[in-house]
Amino acid sequence: MTFLSLKTADLQGKRAFVRVDFNVPMQDGVITDDTRLRAALPTIALLSEKGAKVILAAHFDRPKGKVVPAMSLAPIVPALAALLDRQVAFAADCVGPVAEAAVAQLQAGEVLLLENTRFQPGEEKNDPELAKGFARLADIYVNDAFSAAHRAHASTEGLAHLLPAYPGLSMAHELDYLDKALGNPTHPVMAVVGGAKVSSKIDLLQNLVSKVDILAVGGGMANTFLAARGAHVGKSLCEHDLLDTARAIEAQAASNKCQILLPTDVVVAEAFAAHAPHRTCEIGDVTDQEMILDAGPKSVAALAAALETAKTLVWNGPLGAFELPPFDIGTMEAARTAAALARSGRLVAVAGGGDTVSALNQAKVADDFTFVSTAGGAFLEWMEGKALPGVEALKHPS
């Protein structure tokens, strides 16, 4: 299975229904971060240059199938027009007569933004009739919203079966790097997985131990693995009901010849607060009143040494309470090591997930990673080895 390419398609005069992710953070009607708008610009520019009529569709927030004026996409129009340096038309509906009339006005190369797809009750239900309504607006379908690809909605999955379907440039770029990271990676492959709870990442860990050569576990999750090995973790965040699960994952890793890397020394404190009195100690020396808040220097050095041996890295989640200084040191140092290796061309480093992106930005190394996904849930489901409906629907028999 392969994907059709927009770069080689004849698009002159074609109406292109483009599913984008414009679910951007807004404060008092003003966009506070336009990253997702910028991500769509290359696809919009390519379609316009090739003479297509560009029809943009997106969801915003959770109106649950009702028209909620505060969740309209209208405020996005001026920001998008400024980024594109051209006029952007707006349709007050995403389907039916209002949308059809707006599309009929479009000339080749022009851009139209439709109203919030989730104002339609059939969107999240993947209603076939709504998908047909969308299809009436266009000649081809383009999905450039990888971040919504784990949802089987009418505009992300249903419509893809009704028109010639293409991945947008941003989607294709993401799929290419995800394939390099876990689909067809260069070994040795290392994964760094951190965050608070094992319970939220069981599927992820079970998938990774069958795919990677080294799995470094950090954050609160590491405490559960340490406790499963018999270590005392004091007041640390730890899911004591999941010790058997942690042991099962370790056994699965051993049978797949995947090395699990856990902290050997840790930074502990009695209070979960920035600049709380703290100390570094070996695993086994944590007192009843202390909680583990970061990986210690020996652990970070061991992780750095493992990174030096790897050719591919997939990273999801911090190694400690990185939002509270000085418990951000482990995450920051490991991120800088990975970034330096990626920058020198020795490592393909792919990262994703909200906390991970925040941590890499905090370390000022996000631009040095080979690829940083901002797709959140879709990135996590991909790491879990799950098929993403929005991607599967784009596949074309080769």
Rank of each mutant, 00 (worst) to 15 (best):
L162E: 01
D244M: 12
A52G: 06
P42V: 11
T331H: 09
A196D: 10
Q259W: 03
D285P: 04
L324E: 06
P164A: 07
A269L: 08
A79R: 07
Y166H: 11
H153R: 06
K257G: 13
T312Y: 02
E381R: 12
V77W: 01
A393L: 02
S72I: 00
A366C: 11
H396C: 11
E381K: 14
A246C: 15
V233R: 04
V24Q: 00
G390C: 08
I31D: 03
A145T: 09
K211M: 10
L130Y: 05
A305L: 05
V357R: 14
V20I: 12
G194D: 10
H232E: 11
V30A: 13
L41S: 01
P128S: 10
R151D: 11
L205M: 15
K64G: 00
G183M: 09
S199E: 12
L41M: 11
L56F: 05
C94I: 02
I292S: 03
L83D: 02
V98E: 12
G219I: 08
Q27H: 14
L46F: 07
A101I: 02
A16I: 12
Q87E: 15
A254H: 12
N256Q: 15
R36C: 08
E49L: 01
L163S: 03
D93L: 00
A393T: 03
S48H: 01
D368T: 04
R229K: 15
E384S: 15
A70V: 00
T8H: 13
L261P: 06
L205G: 07
L388N: 07
K235N: 14
N256S: 15
F369G: 10
L80Y: 03
V365N: 02
S299A: 14
V30T: 14
G219R: 09
L324Y: 10
V192D: 02
G195D: 09
P185K: 01
A108E: 11
L262P: 00
D144S: 10
T312R: 05
T309P: 01
G29M: 10
W382D: 08
T287E: 11
A302P: 06
L242A: 10
I202T: 15
L80D: 05
F371I: 13
G194I: 12
L4H: 09
A222R: 03
K132F: 00
A82I: 01
L262H: 06
A321V: 15
G96D: 08
L162M: 03
P78W: 13
P75Q: 07
G385I: 08
P277K: 06
A393S: 05
L303W: 07
A91K: 06
S358D: 12
M291W: 00
